[in-house]
Amino acid sequence: MGDSRVAFDLQIPSDIEYIEGVVELATQRCRELKLSPAKCSLNIPVALTEALSNAILRGNGATGGKQVRIRAIISDTDLVFEVVDEGPGFDVDECTVDCTTDENLTREEGRGLFLMRQLMDRVESFRDKGNVVRLTLHRP
């Protein structure tokens, strides 16, 4: 990624009420980086909301007392968000469902990972002092 800097590094209680504030902060950073309006108003808010809600509701299992960490890292080429929860982790490839097939179209759930992967350039999941989901968006 070359030279990079941390734009923000936050720890929030594992509670969905905190999601919108974090997303707003991330969106502000995107505007400062002069990313395209759609990236700032659609790709990043939706993908980050999905990653945070997965971390809170699935990773941490909506259990009180847990935390979620969010880091934004900026380089010349990329904008990266890392969302870390205290859960056991999951395989992004295995868990992504194509929600556009006829049998899945009317499902009420299962669009989160699909959307993250559609809206970001790369989505990875790995273990590093917790379960990390890393969202990467290439800068123009």
Binding site: S41, L42, P45, T106, E108, E109, L115
Partner: peptide, 17 residues
């Protein structure tokens, strides 16, 4: 409306049904 996430979309599907 600003943006909708997957659970918001899911609620629309559920309500439609």
């Amino acid at each position: 409306t600003g943006y909708i996430d997957s659970s918001g979309l899911g609620v629309l599907v559920s309500l439609s049904k």
